[in-house]
Design a protein around this nucleic acid. Structure first.
Lengths: 341, 341
DNA sequence: CTGAAAGCGCTTACAG
DNA sequence: CTGAAAGCGCTTACAG
């Protein structure tokens, strides 16, 4: 079996002293030319800039950070054990975050937490290697929020929280869900069933509120017997679907697309045609349902944009700028063949 | 709309000078007590250790790194646009990586790349903020490998490459696939269809080799007309399934579970019973198929362990230790109700 | 407009 | 066994 050993001959990088010496100026001057801070003659500035471009000198961000007491890192906290439905969300928002951070010369450190442990976050905080953190879509009880507040570390939640004191950026789930249900009510549908995942997730509670608001606005009574929350197992979903069929629901709305996938499979097994016999829609549009026939009516969110905006908010906040306490990102209601409105 | 501004009163952290002063020893001594390097009296060592425990002093990793010319960061490169089938893989391996890194006081920086751009990785390299990088399951052509080699940056591939000069750790896909097919052949099955995703992914080529080897070992002829590669669209999968049905295949083996999910939906629509009329298995066992009825025979991999091992390999390599050039992590063949062997 | 010097918080030869 | 000093690669008052 072949074996490797690192020779450790890293490329020797050129430093600020090297360029200062080469140009017969001081390090101070070089630093100023690069940062743009402090007065400096236009011609010297240009000389420095030309030289570093030609010799592709890159300042050492670590050293810069040490001098400025900054790290140019943010941490992204994601659940280590999220369910399948959330993966596309994390995947896409991550990309938005990374790109936005990159654009501001920041890097993002990954921290995974599990429901029972914030050990990784604690270590990260202790090590002090980041200027701020992004918390992602969270549970009702969040120890991470507590930790961050206690240590006075700037953070923004990519998600929704009832706590008015924390910065939050989220997809506008409530409005989206409300609009979808409103459209259904407008089209004459009345028996609109709802099947949702765990209420421990804030996002599911928010979606529920959108559903409720639509009924209030339409001055229609909401039939509680058509609502099934906490359906976090196949068995519960099965029960819910059967109840809804018995109750002659006209439409089944699923809170996320894992639920929706299950529902579709159950309906297929029972040979119940969508949308002819029952309509189906999902509050979240992901790759999971992309290839389904019929195509599923759902809410489209731009998770990458959400990630980018969240990152921008954090960076602005770290930079001492004023930022909005609560930001909601727009959605798109995409009606497809699985519904008839 | 409420607005926030960061007051910037970060907690003032205690430094090595503070503890040196408090104990009337030199910074050198404190440093030695902590690092364990260099001679130091047992009693002074204990005094220092007690003090820092009591006042929970944590050395500043950034400063430490600067002095040692290390960063205590590794970068993890993941595709920004991976497909659904790969998400659980990334999610789980990420967790393994983060935990292993954490255990060695390393942090992991996230770098997303897209097929057409390695810009984020290039920036990361230029900034020199990591000691090494983990590349994840990759395409046949990989610009990232080229970049890393060029800059002489230690890296390991979490995946498989034909390039013998790069460190690689991967699930033992080939053996797993071979064993599954061998078991099928042993049980008397002959017409074993295969439907796979894009051949641009190394992993799919590896799986294919496992499939082929099983036939060779069993001295059975492989019927090429039952093999469908590059099925990266629903339409192609549909075609493949129909061909296999026409050819009276006894079993359909899917290279990943997104393919498998499609296949199952198609079979359901055609009212073809699994496993009675046709058996179905998948080369990858993920949450996607978890709730399917019947349960699907598949290969189980411990992606979290894979991530941890990959991280360990990189860290060992960075640390100058000898590491194995190529490591394969074991799998588990899980036979379930979707097959009859 | 420019530079010498101190400092960010550590480590590590070197000397004792 | 312990410490003074130089150094990692930057920034930034301060002085000129």
């Amino acid at each position: 079996m072949e074996v490797f050993r690192n020779e450790g001959m890293a490329n020797h990088k050129i430093t600020i002293s090297d360029v200062a010496e080469a140009l017969s100026v001081s390090k101070t001057t070089v630093s100023r030319a690069i940062s743009g801070k402090g007065r400096i003659g236009e011609d010297t500035r240009q000389r420095v800039l030309d030289y570093i471009a030609a010799n592709d000198y890159k300042p050492n961000v670590i050293a810069k950070g040490l001098a400025q007491k900054k790290t140019y890192n943010i941490a992204l906290v994601i659940p280590g054990d999220c369910n399948l439905a959330d993966m596309p969300f994390f995947q896409n928002s991550m990309q938005g975050i990374c790109e936005e951070a990159s654009a501001h010369d920041y890097d993002v450190m990954l921290v995974t937490t599990s429901a029972n442990s914030s050990a990784n976050l604690e270590r990260m905080i202790a090590n002090n290697k980041m200027d701020g953190v992004i918390l992602s879509r969270s549970m009702i009880e969040d120890r991470n929020v507590y930790l961050l507040k206690e240590h006075n570390i700037p953070f923004v939640l990519m998600g929704t929280s009832g706590d008015k004191n924390i910065l939050q950026v989220d997809n506008d789930h409530k409005s989206g869900c409300r609009e979808m249900i409103s459209r259904m009510l407008d089209s004459g549908l009345r028996k609109i069933g709802l099947i949702g995942g765990s209420k421990n997730y804030v996002v599911n509670r928010t979606r529920m509120r959108g559903y409720q608001e639509a009924f209030v606005r339409a001055r229609q009574e909401l039939d509680e017997t058509l609502v099934f929350e906490d359906c976090d197992s196949p068995a519960r979903i099965q029960d819910a679907v059967e109840c809804l069929i018995r109750a002659r629901a006209e439409c089944i709305v699923c809170m996320d697309d894992v639920v929706c996938l299950s529902v579709l499979q159950i309906l297929a097994k029972k040979d119940i045609a969508v949308p002819q016999q029952i309509q189906v829609a999902s509050f979240y549009d992901s790759a999971l349902l992309k290839n389904n026939k019929p195509a599923i009516t759902s809410l489209g969110f731009d998770d990458k944009a959400l990630g980018a905006l969240t990152c921008k908010t954090l960076l602005d906040y770290i930079g001492g700028m004023e930022v909005q306490g609560k930001t909601r990102v727009d959605y798109e209601l995409v009606t497809r063949a699985s519904t008839l409105f």
